[in-house]
């Protein structure tokens, strides 16, 4: 959908000074504060005897990684995918199916998760990225639904009941079944993903994606093939989300097709938007808010989804730039 904005025909010929951009700085500060807080959270929570919340935070970090990956395509690329959660499933089932076959070798499971996610993103991206707007929304949904129904139909891997993973992934002495180990592995991956996002956003590649989002015609007029760069971003995002799925499978010890449903993909979009689209700290902020609301409100009332829905509508109506946007006057970019 294009919004036509009337050209400003005023006599603003006097040159204005370059606008400083405090936005990004606030965003980065928030990112470091959140990461630091996450690093000490297990000790603090153990000290006050609220270990349960460590699990909630761990899950939020895994969702945060998935949301960072989605932010590459929604935030930088402007491409709304309603099927991104499929990569959580692909990463998860890579662990689950290999474990089911008795292979608990860490590098093999990780390699499979990354490889299958990347291959799926590449194959579907080649087709999906030829479409725009709502057609892109629907075609990404369609690819996700195909995998969703495939796993529903494969009874030998649990079908709609899901697949229990009895062996956790091990890398030599490093056992991801150990919650403490997993926590810091996930934190490291999250930190690296956020750093990577911050860097790419400022890079040649990021500029190109943002420009293609704003005006595709301009990008090809200067001589770039936007499709290739979008495909690269799509594959990178899918692979990173596959990694999140790999970690999630180790965390829950369980994979189910419902992780790939369009509702899950909708939740990922929600996390990105609530946190602040195209920002570094937004995805983890959004994921924490999402899970804290779920746990907190879920404890207060069984009808918490109602308030959650209202919260979502209010955010979209009144705080278009998300929580990080509230920190800044201008939208971070």
């Amino acid at each position: 959908m294009t919004r036509s904005i009337p050209a400003e025909d005023g006599a603003k010929l006097t040159s204005a000074p370059a606008r400083p951009r405090p936005a990004t700085d606030c965003d980065l500060v928030a990112a470091f504060v959140i990461l630091a807080a996450l690093a000490v959270a297990p000790f603090a929570l153990a000290a006050i005897g609220h270990d349960f919340w460590t699990d909630v935070i761990l899950r939020a970090m895994i969702l945060g990684i998935a949301a960072v990956s989605l932010n590459f395509i929604i935030g930088l690329g402007g491409l709304v995918s309603l099927g991104h959660a499929v990569f959580l499933g692909i990463g998860g089932y890579s662990v689950g199916i290999l474990a089911d076959l008795g292979i608990d070798n860490g590098p093999a499971q990780l390699g499979a998760a990354l490889l299958f996610s990347a291959a799926f993103a590449w194959l579907t991206g080649m087709i999906a990225l030829r479409t725009r707007g709502v057609h892109f929304i629907m075609i990404t949904l369609a690819f996700a639904q195909m995998v969703y129904f495939t796993m529903m139909g494969l009874r030998q891997f649990g079908g709609d009941d899901g697949l229990t993973i009895n062996y956790s992934t091990t890398f030599g002495p490093l056992d991801l079944g150990d919650k403490d180990v997993l926590y810091y592995v996930v934190l490291a991956v999250l930190g690296a993903a956020m750093l990577g996002f911050a860097r790419v956003r400022r890079s040649d590649f990021g500029l190109l994606l943002k420009a293609a989002k704003g005006n595709e015609r301009r990008v090809s007029a200067v001589g770039f093939n936007a499709y290739r760069y979008r495909l690269a971003a799509y594959v990178a995002a899918g692979t990173l989300c596959g990694l999140a799925g790999f970690l999630d499978a180790n965390f829950t010890g369980f994979v189910t097709p419902s992780a790939m449903s369009w509702i899950s993909s909708g939740e990922l979009i929600f996390i990105v938007i609530v946190g602040g689209i195209a920002s570094v700290s937004g995805p983890i902020a959004g994921a924490l808010v999402f899970l804290l609301i779920e746990e907190w409100m879920g404890g207060l009332t069984v009808y918490w989804h109602f308030w959650f829905g209202l919260f979502l509508i209010a955010i979209i109506l009144f705080a278009r730039n998300g929580l990080v946007g509230l920190l800044n006057q201008r939208r971070p970019r």
Binding site: I5, S203, D204, L207, L208, N215, R218, F224, Y229
Partner: peptide
């Protein structure tokens, strides 16, 4: 057909990158 959300510099740099062939640097 300028990219309205970007700065003047970013719009010009986009064209510079294309002409210099410095397209896909992520970093």
């Amino acid at each position: 057909t300028l990219v309205r959300d970007l700065t003047v510099a970013e719009n010009v740099i986009l064209a510079l990158l294309a002409r210099q062939g410095h397209a896909g640097r992520f970093w």
